[in-house]
Design a protein around this nucleic acid. Structure first.
Length: 102
DNA sequence: CGCCCGGCGTGTA
DNA sequence: CTACACGCCGGGC
């Protein structure tokens, strides 16, 4: 990965993520792939991890491929993400997102 | 260079 | 549902 690529990757991810409509969600891998870098799901996760808490990005709409919140239940991140998702109409059971399966 | 670990992914049991 | 396997890629040491 060249520095150039990293920048593209990041901006792409941000762009795409910012365009994920309310009520929808996307997987880390999807995001990476759409950004032009398949198999970089973990890298996306790393990014989410660095986002400031006051970010305006819909990071909560990012879930793993099994459509589950990628945080152990009852952890900070888990709770915050769950809240946001529920506010957007999702039904969450444990770490799993139900309904609106599209 | 190797080894381990992560907001991951897919398959199988 | 859990539990592994194996693949992937950066980062830290």
């Amino acid at each position: 990965m060249t520095n150039q690529a990293i920048d593209n990757f990041k901006s792409q991810v941000f762009l795409i993520l910012n365009n994920v409509p309310r009520g929808e969600c996307i997987a880390y891998g999807e995001l990476a792939a759409l950004a032009g870098f398949p198999n970089h799901a973990r890298q996306v996760g790393a990014m989410m991890k660095n986002l400031p808490k006051d970010t305006n990005l819909p990071w909560h709409r990012v879930v793993n491929a099994r459509k589950r919140i990628s945080f152990p239940e009852n952890t900070e991140g888990y709770l915050r993400q769950k809240e946001k998702l529920e506010q957007e109409g999702w039904v969450i059971i444990g770490t799993k997102l139900a309904m609106k399966t599209d």
